[in-house]
């Protein structure tokens, strides 16, 4: 009796475990999408910088769409579009695909800004030392430009991490969806929201503080 009471109403240890698992899912889908998305986005950013007008008429408008349509619409659209072209993606896979492309679209403009923040005179200097184009890109542009846009990239990362909550719309039970499920069952919204909020905050706040400190140190 006692047990069934707590199963239906109270918030128990099992539920905390359930939330913890969901938090790991949030982390997992974020880390996966952000990693691939950053690589892809950096490549796009390089294309935007190098390709000039070809890129302006091809990938630039496509990336723009990902930044101008709500993520939630992108998710629903893709999830329902995949079966039409014969792909059977589960909510997780659909979420990863869209979050990755979304990250890539945001990182592309950050990366382009990074490349353009390296003064041409510096690049001429490294080329005149005999470095090849690729050596210059990896040993000069990447460390210097990367440092300049690191805080902006952290902003993208934290944004995507928080936006990953939207994958719940496809039925993927990440942290916020899990909270919603528990709220419906236990009727203890404040406690559960506090736990979920604390998780996001504990992840996001230290990272944004670090990025801010980093920015101040390098702007001097």
């Amino acid at each position: 009796m006692q047990e069934s009471m707590s199963f239906f109403t109270g918030f128990g240890l099992n539920d905390l475990w359930f939330l913890g698992e969901a938090a790991l899912k949030t982390l997992w889908i974020s880390v996966l999408s952000i990693s691939i998305g950053t690589l892809l986005g950096t490549f796009f950013g390089w294309l935007l910088h190098e390709g000039k007008w070809v890129a302006t008429f091809t990938i630039a408008p496509i990336l723009d769409v990902f930044r101008s349509v709500p993520l939630i619409i992108q998710l629903v659209l893709f999830y329902n579009f995949a079966p039409i072209i014969g792909l059977n993606f589960d909510p997780f896979a659909s979420g990863v695909v869209i979050l990755t492309l979304y990250t890539a679209a945001l990182v592309a403009s950050v990366a382009r800004g990074g490349i353009e923040s390296v003064p041409p005179s510096m690049r001429r200097a490294s080329r005149s030392l005999g470095m090849s184009y690729w050596q210059d890109l990896f040993h000069v542009v990447l460390p210097i430009g990367g440092r300049a846009v690191f805080p902006a990239w952290v902003g993208v990362v934290l944004g995507v991490m928080k936006d990953s909550a939207l994958v719940s719309v496809l039925g993927y039970v990440e942290l916020l969806k899990a909270s919603q499920v528990l709220i419906t069952r236990t009727q203890e919204p404040l406690l559960i929201l506090a736990i979920a909020g604390a998780f996001y905050f504990a992840l996001s706040y230290p990272i944004s503080r670090y990025a801010h400190k980093f920015e101040q140190r390098w702007s001097k």
């Binding site: 928080k162 909550a165 916020l176 919603q180 919204p189 929201l193 905050f201 944004s208």
Partner: peptide, 18 residues
């Protein structure tokens, strides 16, 4: 700035509802 917007909406919905 450090929590999802959807979380904030849930708070003003479920949270205040409680």
């Amino acid at each position: 700035r450090n929590t999802p917007a959807l979380f904030q909406l849930f708070f003003f919905g479920f949270g205040l509802g409680a």
